[in-house]
Design a binder for these strands. Structure first.
Lengths: 331, 331
DNA sequence: AACTCGCGTGCACAAACGTGCAAGGAGACC
DNA sequence: GGTCTCCTTGCACGTTTGTGCACGCGAGTT
């Protein structure tokens, strides 16, 4: 076996080039030529188990891409219905209705992570919000190497008890790693206590730079928060909000949030005091991104989802079947 | 289970739409969500074996597409060498050197069939030659639905003993089926006995129509024939040529043929008498096709391959590793 | 030098998968 | 209505694949 000295330069934990090469070859033999792993092991002079692991590696690292095309004459009823009704390209993830909410989230996140590669490309600015949904997605991303793209954090993540930085930065880092992109953190709390502090912060040059990036995103990626659903979202259980904030939201008729910016059922977000202290981008700013992908799982989030749609925040939707069905059974 | 009356309209042997739908759903669950077939069986209210079969169907019918991307920093040495040296986009199929020639052919054909989908698209005119290589490829094609594309037979297939029509038409039909394309047969012998007959035939309107199609192909697909290799190609064993033809070829310094048109090592094809009686397209005509894909397996065909390259017939090459390696180890 | 830590390997076992086969069901034809 | 044929289904079996574990090697540390 000839030894090539250089390492695979595009992976952070250095993977020997030989491994990638073997994985590539194994993948060819397995997926293009239908050999069994045993046969491949013989060709590569290794054991079958190693081949199994090589193939896992090949899939996990994006060397092998598996995509599913519905024939054009048979796109999911739901997807075309959603397109017709809301002008949103939907990706419906099949999940049985009796599945638990955690299952549902996992499965939607897994599917979402795997189709995200289609949306993210070189030379793009990608805004990512954080929350339980995005966190689940981030754990399943399939690497895809891009050049000159950046991941931009959409909203702050600090709270009363912890800085939250770890949680959010871990999430962002996973995106950065997966796409070989630079990560732009936004080291502020999720909500300021005092709007004035926010304003002051917003005048800082480092903040301005970030806001400027947010203003010219190519892709925005987010979930929706659902303050009053049984399954509370990250923002609503992590000590980010006080009891009185909660009450205020309720009084204002808030149905959800995107990147910690709240809105009502009609999509409006003006006059909600908490937004003055929130760190997420204005919807006006967010809407400048040509592609705005929303990942939602669970019917409990339906009202929030409807609100986000009403606000015109979404161009692409990834959601489970039950939620999609509920969405088109119009209220 | 709701019953939808209409059938899947794009498959010749009618497949119920329900089946495609189930296959699609199974594929999502299997490939996007990593469920086991057991779990999928439960969701679809069927048995695990049926799920296994659904998934096979999904793969075989192109619902699921598996592609392999080499990282851009690690394209096969061979492929980039061939590109640099011959300006040909090569696809090297890994095959161990000690593999038998039949194995080699099978494996190259299988891989070729699976990547062909990338080259053939809607609204295209695709010329296909026939021979053992193309026949092997045709047996593994993965369907891809296209609109308004046509498959055009490049050369006649009759010989002294049989009309050869069955063989060639079966091959062409498989291509047509796989891409949902109309098939244009070319019902003439591989070689006329008398050049005059050919000329007469060439004045027929039906022939002219076909030649006109051949003149504006978008893609041409062919193998290379190798008259003097141990493993004789279809043309050289099927009773298409007489002993004296053979001798004449040898005397003319012929090293191979593409679609029954012969050429020398330097790529020239002028002054080879047999070509006056052959039914394949002139290289001048062939070269009008912007994309000309050649599938070759086995080092025995190397001289023929070199000749075809010298003649400028090839823009894309699909071949086994050994042949590719031999190609760059320049003679 | 000895030790530890991390990583890759093969083994062995369990889980997951493909497929021949027989049974059942839906037309089609008589 | 019968019956013949073709297709689909689930079962059972053998094969193929994933993975915990123990071992061994090499790099870095004391």
């Amino acid at each position: 076996m000839t030894w090539t000295p250089q390492d695979d330069p595009d992976r952070s934990p250095e993977v020997p080039a030989g491994k990638t090469r073997d994985a590539l070859r194994a993948a060819h033999l397995y997926y293009m030529q239908d050999l069994t792993m045993d046969a491949i092991a013989a060709e590569l002079h290794t054991s079958r188990s190693s081949v199994s692991r090589l193939l896992s590696h090949a899939r996990a690292s994006g060397l092998v891409e598996i995509s599913i095309h519905s024939p054009l004459d048979l796109p999911s009823r739901l997807e075309q219905e959603i397109l017709a009704r809301h002008e949103i390209a939907a990706h419906v993830v099949p999940v049985p209705d009796q599945a638990s909410d955690v299952d549902r989230l996992d499965r939607v996140a897994l599917s979402a992570a795997r189709i995200l590669g289609r949306f993210i490309d070189s030379n793009q600015l990608v805004g990512v919000a954080w929350g339980s949904t995005m966190s689940a997605v981030s754990r399943h991303l399939v690497p895809k190497s891009t050049h000159n793209s950046e991941i931009v954090q959409l909203n702050g993540a600090g709270n009363l008890r912890t800085t939250g930085i770890l949680y959010a930065s871990e999430l962002l880092r996973r995106f950065g790693d997966a796409f070989g992109a630079k990560v732009q953190q936004f080291p502020v709390p999720a909500f300021f206590d005092d709007p004035a502090t926010k304003e002051a912060f917003w005048r800082e040059r480092s903040t301005k730079r970030l806001l400027e990036l947010q203003g010219r995103l190519d892709v925005a990626l987010f979930g929706v928060g659902s303050p009053f659903a049984e399954v509370a979202s990250r923002v609503y259980q992590g000590g980010y909000l006080e009891r009185e904030d909660y009450a205020a939201l309720s009084a204002d008729g808030v149905v959800g949030d995107v990147a910690t910016v709240f809105y009502r059922a009609d999509g409006s977000s003006e006059g909600i005091p908490l937004n003055e202290r929130a760190t997420g981008p204005d919807f006006g700013v967010l809407r400048r991104a040509p592609r705005r992908i929303c990942v939602v799982s669970g019917r409990a989030k339906l009202p929030s989802l409807r609100g986000a749609i009403a606000a015109g925040l979404i161009t692409d939707l990834i959601t489970d079947e039950g939620t999609a069905r509920a969405l088109v059974e119009h209220a």
